[in-house]
Each structure stands twice: as structure tokens, then as C-alpha cells.
Design a protein around this nucleic acid. Structure first.
Length: 938
DNA sequence: GCAAGGTC
């Protein structure tokens, strides 16, 4: 390119509004023409302008020299990403491949149907041009979109010279400077986004297909979910968002109220009552509180020991970012984040507010903030405040604070056009516009100022403090009516003054669980953990509602549904943190490394996909855990997942017909078999043991069986339906080498499962832990990731139609490692046939003790095994809740009534100290200590 | 029919 020669330049912005604004600035509105493109939203602006392009200077390679060209500018836009990532056609149908294949399946970027018009515009305009200048937003996504535009434009005109404009705000200064110093686009930023897109697609699609096909047809979901087309999606943003909701819900359920005590003191003087707060706050120890209280009552004279006066300030909020807009609209107006964004988008489109998707919470010094205030002077509600702000003698103006975030693309949300309300606006349009304007006016105002008086008194050595506040200047609070600054007035007290309190009471209260997460809380959690972006956070929340993973009540507080809980519980039980925010945080860290050039996209993709695929395969092998947690909340359906089992998984080539494959299949009654896919021409079949919960073909090949390869199968058995000396998780082979599998088939049979008259779902009656929801009980099991569901009432009832659950004294037997009820069973194994043993019903604990060992000394083989496991698992088991430890020795059994089983080394199980002290507290409270004193002083 | 990210 030779300096001075006139160029034709195609400029592309990320959205139509930016194309318009930048064209206006660069043309200085002189000779600006506009015409339609093929897309109705993306018009083309034309004007003349000079551009500065970098020229490589060998003498100073790090600082390019610039050459300037007068240019004919064509300025158009895209609308966000021009391309989408998708699997090749043959992997797109759900049943076209194993979901695990999606980790290697070829992917391609393509322009979707609704963007083809924009693509054609770009191609047509690119053919006329010498240069392409990219004006996408200056963030990683913008850089990635830039390369999508480059691909389309160079496809039409390979001779284009390509430059990137960098600007941090749509201000004259920034834009005019950037066009004079164009740079090259940054491939590393675009690479980071490519990697993110690919991983999101592969993880999301594989897990979504896997869990949908596994669970949708296997359970009778709630009525609302009975649409068979429901998708049980997994996504690296939606699941951590669900995780926040579920964790809070479990926290609430696991909360155990605790009583605490406070000494409250008040004093009325000059018709004003001051409330004095106890310096100790509150005590959980009742006797201690009573002693201190008694001392105060004995010598109730209060002495003023300190009086202080201080000026306090309440600062206005930082300039408004998207997340803050959503949080505040939710708090002030109960608007959902999704609705807020819709209304904000509408206000933006019609020019009343600035771009509503921004992380920036500080104003660039270049912005003319006074001009924005000036526009608002005529408003009937806040116009006079705006006038006062602009009055230099009023002293109300204050430069806005800096919240510390800058996305380098958009300013904070602020009003861009005056309105006293439009006829077509809904109430929410009015509310949101008012919030944006008042927030802006508040940002440029002085903080509120108050005078705070603090009085400290001493009663019998105990200290109490009363605080009063008087607002001296409301300042920003005058216009920001959504916030208040509570103040109370207290009378004047003099140092050394003595008085008798009007009331002195000992009051009890109980600790309360935290509230359910509000939308504002949820947005904060997501923001803090980096889940989603300002433009997508509300989408992730809405997705949880759409998928029936969570519900939102009238107070915008979220609860997980049974489905949401079951899924999170399932992944948690598998030991994966797929529902926690770490995955996304790690991804963000890796994206930064790719952008910085310290990590290569290809290396990162390879490592990350290998790890994720291995996690996926592992999850599939452990799918029984997911099925188990679903069992807690839902009944099994008789549909069984035909979709996953009709074709089956290949185990080996059929050793009879040698033509087809032997496939692992699930029978319509839920049992498993391995049969030749040539059936009925070939009738080779291997029936598998009845108590199998799940079976998955692994990639491991048996080294003994021929003809190979014979792939091993990961079995998961129902613990209580197989003899105790067999492992519930068994990697087996159907080729003939696996004696354990043969024995289990012989012992347990291949027929239907043990029927249960008491089970609504045909479950084994001993499987008590899954009943809460089915029985219509309102209480769901409390659960946290280190805290298994508490036992259902059935667990303690001792009702069991098949198994004895009591010890030799008739009382129920409780496993003292995990606190779960035990059952007495009879062994069927050849070595121990007829021998009785106690079996802990907790599937987490899974251990047993021979009954004859208990009667001898309680330290037999079973006890040893039990101890070993308790140690391996850190001594914690299912049903054992934090803070409540068993008082008995490890590896022994005691009865629930606290009596030891005969002859053994057993320890009495006492009620917890907190239970007895709580009872004592209640009794003492009922004696009315506080009431007596109230009578004395009132 | 899957994700998350842009945007209209």
C-alpha cells in the first residue's frame, strides 16, 4: 500500500448501534450516507475518513510506524457471533453415536441460517474493498467474532489487508484516536474462545445425551415433566448455578436450631426510649447467661462510662453495571433478571439508556457527565434535584466512585435520552428507566452525612451500648429513594451519669437457617465465581426454571426441585465436582493462559478433553449412583431406558455364530443379559444375576477368554441382595473365566427381584432410605455433600417384613459407625450357609458382623472389617451429621435403647449432650426468669 | 433434542 493512495475500507462492528455511532464520530456527520444491506438490521454507512495503518519498521520492530490514507469507508455490522460450532452431521442425531464419541467427533464452524443475510452483505461489500477494519468489542469474544468476519470476508476477497481498531468507549476521543492507530487482530484471544466453545459443546452434549437417555424413561418424573421430549441438560454454567441453589437448600434443611440468650436493656428518658445492646451479643450457655443476668439484676444501676459523637457517611453506589442493574431491579421491584434484560434492551433500542450489557462500573474521565444531568432537569420528579446538582453553589456534585471493573468496551449504564414516560412503556419500563436515571444522579452526588452518638453503660461489670443517628444531609439519598439510612434519636447522656434501666430482661432466641437464595444472591454467587457473563447470567437462571431443575417463589427466592436435587446429589455421590463452580473457574484460568500465550490452544484442548472424557466414562460406569439418587425422589418407570438399551453395548463377537456381536442389554423387566444381536437366528445368550443395578461395558479386555476381544463389564449389585462376601462393585467377564459372576448367578438367580408387598414401586422393603418423597411426606432428606440424607422415619420404625432388625434384647440394632439401622440376615454362601449376620443398611457403609461373633465378644471378623473401613473413610459415614458423634467404640453394635448386646465389647449410646442441655434450658426458661425481672422494673 | 457466547 503506498501512502496517499485512496483506499476503500470495509469496517465491521459487533452490533448495528456501534456501526452507527462510530460512523457518526468518524464522519463528524459530514457526508454520511446510509443504505440497506441484505439484513434488515445491519445497515451500511458510507463516508470519507483518514485511517492510520501500522507499517513494520525493522529498526524498531516493537513500535510500528504509521502511514495515513484518506479512505472511502463502508461501515456495517454483525449481530454478535456470526458462526456457531456444531458436530459433523453424522454425530448430530442423538442415537447416531455413543455420547463418549463426542469427545473426538469432528466439529465445524458454520454460519447459521438466520445469519446468512449478514454473511452475504459482508461478502458483497468485501469484494469492493482493499482493507478490512474490525471494530468488534474489545474483549475475547469480540476478538473471536473478528476472526469469523475475517473468514467470511477473505473468502470473498483474499487480497484484503486486515486491521483491528481498539477503543474503550464510544467517545469521540477514543474513536478518533483508534482509527489513526489501527493494529492487527489478536489470534491468541480468539484461540481462547475457540477452546472454550469446543469444550462447552463436547461436555454439554455428551453429558446431556447421557443423563437424558439414562434417566428420562427410567423414572416416573413429576407431572410437569411427563412430556417425553424433556431434556435433562448438563452445562458447565447451568449446573454450578443449580449447585448454588441446592447447597443453600441443603444448608437450610441441615440446620439445627440452637437456643441462645441475650440480656436486653432499655431506658426511657425525655419520652425517648434508648435500646442498649449487650456487648457480649449473646451466649449459647444458659447457666452462664443466668449468672451474668442475676448479677445485673442484683445491682441494676447503670453508669455511663463513654459518650462519643462521630460523623458518619453513607456513600452513593458505584456506576451501574449489568449485574448490579439486575440485582437492584430484583431487590427493588422483584423483577426477574431475564425480564430486566428484556426491558433494558428495549430501552436501549429506543435510545433511552446506554448499552445494558456492561461490566464497567466507573465512568471514563472523557465522558461529559454534566450534560447527562442537564438533560434530566425538566423531569417532574427528579428534575429539581438535577438542577441542584448542576448549581455550583449547591455543593451537591461529587465525582463518581470507581467500582474497579472495566470491560474496555462499554461505559456503565446511564440515561442517554430524557423521558418523562412514554405512552407505550409498561410499568417496568418506567421503573427501570427511573432506576437508571436516579442511580446515575446518585453516583454524581455527595454521600449522605449523619451524626452518630454512641453511649456505653456499665451494669454490674457488664457493658451495654446504645447508638443514635441523626441525618445531617441526605444528599444522594434524596434522589435515590430505593435506599434508606435508618436513624434513631437517643437522649443526651453525660459521662458518669447513673440511672436505673426501665427494663432489663434475659431473653432467649433460636438460631435460624439462612434464607433461600434470592435472585440477587444467586447473581452475586455467579458473579463471584465467574459463572456466565453479564449478558448470559440471566439465561442460565432461566434455563434452570425451564428444565424444571429449580423453582422461584413470589419473593424471587429459589428452591431446587426433586429433579434438580437428585442430579446434583448423583454427581456428588460419584465424587465429581461437575456441579461446583471450580470447573468454570479453571476454564477461565486456562483461557487467560491461552490469551497470554503461555498455553497453546491445541495442548489445552487435548489435555482438557482427555480429562473430561475420562470423567465422562467414569461417570457412566458409576451411573448406578445417579440412579440411586433418582430413586430417592422418583418411582421407577416400566419404560426403562429403551433408548439406551435397545441397541446395547458390544461385549464380544458371538462365540457361537461367529457372525454378529454379543450385546449387553437390559431386559424389559429391568434385568440384564448378554445376547447375540443376530437373534432369533442365533440364540446365544448369557443371563446375568438378578441383583444388578447397573452394568456398563468397559474398554478393558479380558486376557484369558477367547475368542477375543472380550470386554469386561463393570457391574454394580444391590448390596443387600448378594452375599456379604461378594463385592457390590465388580469388574467381571462373561467369557467364562469369572467364578464370582458364575456363583452370583447361581446364588441369586437371574429372575425377578424379591417382591415387596409394602413397596409402592416394587422396591425391596429393606431399601428404606428412598421413601420420603414417595410416601407424600413433606420433609425431604437433609443432605450436603459431606452429609448423606438423614434417615427417613421408616428407618427407625423397625417395620420390616422380611428382616429382623432387633438385637437379642429385642431392641433395634444400630450400626455405631454410621448410625443406620441394621438388619439380621442369613448367609447363603457355601462356606457360611445358615449363619446369621447383622448388615448395616447404609449403602455407604455396607459392612456387617456375624451374629455369633457379637454374642462371643463383638470383635470378630466383621468387627475388624468394620473398623478398617471406618478408618479408611475418616470414621464418618452416612447418616452421621456434623457435630453429633457416636459415643461408642468403633466396630461394635449397640441397641438403639442404649443397652449393649450380650457379652460383647459394647458401649452405651447416650443421647447427645446438646439434647439434654436443650431440655434443661427449656425447663429453666419456662420458669420465667425474664418475666420476673420485667415485672420488677416495668 | 445437547453448551455458552454474542446479539435483533
Amino acid at each position: 500500500m503506498s501512502a496517499g493512495r485512496r483506499r476503500t475500507v470495509l469496517n465491521v462492528a459487533e452490533k448495528p448501534s456501534v456501526a452507527k455511532s462510530v460512523s457518526g464520530i468518524l464522519s463528524r456527520s459530514r457526508g454520511l450516507r446510509v443504505r440497506d444491506g441484505r439484513s434488515r438490521y445491519n445497515r451500511i454507512f458510507e463516508f470519507e475518513c483518514s485511517i492510520g495503518v501500522p507499517v513494520h519498521d525493522p529498526s524498531n520492530p516493537s513500535r510500528p510506524r504509521y502511514e495515513y490514507y484518506s479512505s472511502h469507508m463502508l461501515f456495517t455490522s454483525v449481530t454478535g457471533h456470526l458462526m456457531e460450532l456444531e458436530f459433523d452431521d453424522r454425530f448430530r442425531k442423538w442415537h447416531s453415536c455413543d455420547p463418549a464419541d463426542l469427545y473426538q467427533a469432528p466439529v465445524r464452524k458454520y454460519v447459521p441460517q438466520d445469519k446468512l443475510d449478514i454473511k452475504r452483505t459482508l461478502e458483497e461489500e468485501a469484494r469492493k474493498c482493499d482493507c478490512l477494519v474490525l471494530w468488534l468489542d474489545c474483549d475475547r469474544e469480540g476478538e473471536n467474532i473478528a476472526f469469523e468476519v475475517i473468514e467470511v470476508c477473505t473468502g470473498a476477497n483474499p487480497h484484503l489487508e486486515i486491521y483491528r481498531a481498539h477503543f474503550s468507549a464510544l467517545t469521540d476521543r477514543d474513536i478518533l484516536a483508534s482509527v489513526q492507530k489501527l493494529l492487527k487482530p489478536n489470534q491468541l484471544d480468539a484461540d481462547a474462545v475457540d477452546a472454550r466453545q469446543e469444550i462447552d459443546l463436547r461436555i454439554g452434549a455428551s453429558f446431556t445425551r447421557f443423563q437424558t437417555m439414562l434417566l428420562r424413561d427410567a423414572f416416573v418424573l413429576d407431572n410437569a415433566l411427563e412430556d417425553r421430549n424433556i431434556v435433562l441438560s448438563y452445562g458447565p454454567c447451568q449446573f454450578p448455578t443449580l449447585g448454588f441453589i441446592v447447597e443453600r437448600f441443603w444448608e437450610i434443611q441441615a440446620h439445627e436450631p440452637e437456643e441462645f440468650w441475650t440480656i436486653n436493656c432499655s431506658h426511657t428518658s425525655e419520652d425517648v426510649t434508648s435500646t442498649f445492646n449487650w456487648a457480649r451479643g449473646h451466649l449459647f450457655d444458659y447457666p452462664c447467661a443466668v449468672i451474668l443476668y442475676d448479677m445485673c439484676v442484683e445491682e441494676p444501676t447503670a453508669t455511663v462510662i463513654k459518650v462519643s459523637n462521630q460523623e458518619r457517611r453513607k456513600y452513593p453506589p458505584f456506576p451501574l453495571s449489568t449485574v448490579e442493574l439486575q440485582k437492584r431491579a430484583s431487590r427493588f421491584f422483584h423483577m426477574s433478571s431475564e425480564h430486566t434484560m428484556k426491558v433494558a434492551e428495549d430501552l436501549y433500542q429506543s435510545g433511552f439508556i446506554s448499552y445494558p450489557r456492561t461490566e464497567t462500573d466507573n465512568f471514563s474521565p472523557n465522558m461529559d457527565l454534566q450534560a447527562i444531568v442537564q438533560e434530566q432537569q425538566g423531569h417532574p420528579s427528579w428534575g429539581s434535584y438535577a438542577q441542584r446538582l448542576l448549581d455550583p453553589t449547591g455543593g451537591l456534585w461529587n465525582n463518581p466512585g470507581n467500582g474497579g471493573h472495566d470491560d474496555k468496551a462499554h461505559p456503565p449504564i446511564h440515561p442517554t435520552k430524557f423521558s418523562a414516560g412514554e405512552s407505550r412503556w409498561s410499568q417496568d419500563h418506567n421503573r427501570l428507566y427511573e432506576l437508571v436515571v436516579r442511580h446515575f444522579l446518585a453516583c454524581v452526588s455527595k454521600p449522605a452525612i449523619g451524626a452518630e452518638t454512641s453511649v456505653e453503660i456499665d451494669i454490674a461489670g457488664e457493658s451495654f451500648t446504645a447508638t443514635g443517628r441523626m441525618i445531617i444531609a441526605k444528599n444522594y439519598l434524596e434522589v435515590y429513594r430505593f435506599e434508606s439510612w435508618g436513624g434513631s434519636i437517643i437522649p443526651n447522656y453525660a459521662l458518669g451519669q447513673k440511672f436505673i434501666p426501665t427494663s432489663l430482661t434475659l431473653d432467649s432466641s433460636i438460631t435460624r437457617p439462612p434464607p433461600l437464595l434470592s435472585e440477587s444472591d444467586l447473581l452475586s454467587c455467579m458473579d463471584k465465581a465467574g459463572i456466565g457473563t453479564d449478558a448470559t447470567m440471566h439465561d442460565h437462571i432461566k434455563k434452570l426454571l425451564d428444565r424444571f431443575y429449580a423453582t422461584k417463589d413470589q419473593n424471587t427466592r429459589f428452591s431446587p426441585t426433586n429433579l434438580g436435587q437428585a442430579l446434583v446429589m448423583g454427581y456428588d455421590a460419584m465424587g465429581y465436582e461437575l456441579w461446583k463452580p471450580n470447573l468454570r473457574a479453571n476454564m477461565e484460568r486456562d483461557m487467560k493462559a491461552i490469551s497470554a500465550g503461555t498455553k497453546r490452544k491445541s495442548d489445552f484442548l487435548q489435555t482438557c478433553l482427555e480429562q473430561t472424557k475420562s470423567c465422562f466414562l467414569d461417570a457412566r460406569i458409576n451411573k448406578a449412583k445417579l440412579l440411586e439418587t433418582m430413586d430417592i425422589f422418583f418411582e421407577r418407570s416400566n419404560r426403562y431406558s429403551e433408548s439406551t438399551t435397545s441397541d446395547g453395548e458390544i461385549v464380544r463377537t458371538c462365540n457361537q455364530c461367529l457372525e454378529s456381536n454379543m450385546m449387553l442389554k437390559r431386559r424389559p423387566d429391568g434385568h440384564f443379559m448378554v445376547g447375540c444381536s443376530r437373534f432369533p437366528l442365533c440364540r446365544n445368550v448369557i443371563w446375568l444375576p438378578g441383583p444388578i443395578i447397573s452394568a456398563s461395558v468397559t474398554s478393558q479386555v479380558c486376557t484369558m477368554c477367547i475368542p477375543g476381544p472380550v470386554y469386561k463389564i463393570q457391574f454394580n449389585f444391590r448390596r443387600l441382595e448378594i452375599p456379604p462376601n461378594y463385592d457390590a462393585n465388580h469388574l467381571g467377564c462373561i467369557g467364562g473365566c469369572d467364578n464370582a459372576l458364575k456363583e452370583l448367578t447361581e446364588i441369586c438367580g437371574t429372575g425377578p427381584r424379591i417382591p415387596s408387598s409394602s413397596s409402592a414401586r416394587g422396591r425391596s422393603s429393606m431399601d428404606f432410605s428412598t421413601s420420603a418423597n414417595r410416601a407424600g411426606a413433606s420433609r425431604q432428606p437433609a443432605y450436603s455433600s459431606n452429609n448423606w440424607p438423614s434417615q427417613s422415619p421408616l428407618a427407625h420404625s423397625g417395620h420390616n417384613d422380611r428382616n429382623q432388625t432387633s438385637g437379642n434384647d429385642g431392641a433395634p440394632v444400630v450400626c455405631n459407625s454410621c448410625g443406620t439401622l441394621c438388619i439380621l440376615r442369613t448367609s447363603n454362601t457355601a462356606a457360611n450357609r445358615g449363619r446369621k449376620f447383622y448388615s448395616c443398611q447404609s449403602q455407604e457403609c455396607n459392612f456387617f458382623m456375624w451374629e455369633d461373633n457379637i454374642e462371643n465378644n463383638g470383635t470378630g471378623r466383621g468387627a475388624s472389617a468394620h473398623r478398617g473401613v471406618a478408618a479408611r473413610r475418616g470414621g464418618r459415614g452416612r447418616g452421621q451429621r456434623g457435630g453429633r458423634s457416636s459415643t461408642s467404640a468403633a466396630g461394635t453394635f449397640v441397641t438403639a435403647t442404649g443397652e449393649p448386646l450380650s457379652g460383647g465389647r459394647f458401649v452405651k449410646r447416650t443421647s447427645s449432650p446438646s439434647d439434654s442441655s436443650a431440655k434443661e434450658k427449656r425447663e429453666r426458661q419456662n420458669k420465667g426468669c425474664a418475666v420476673v425481672v420485667r415485672q420488677r422494673y416495668l
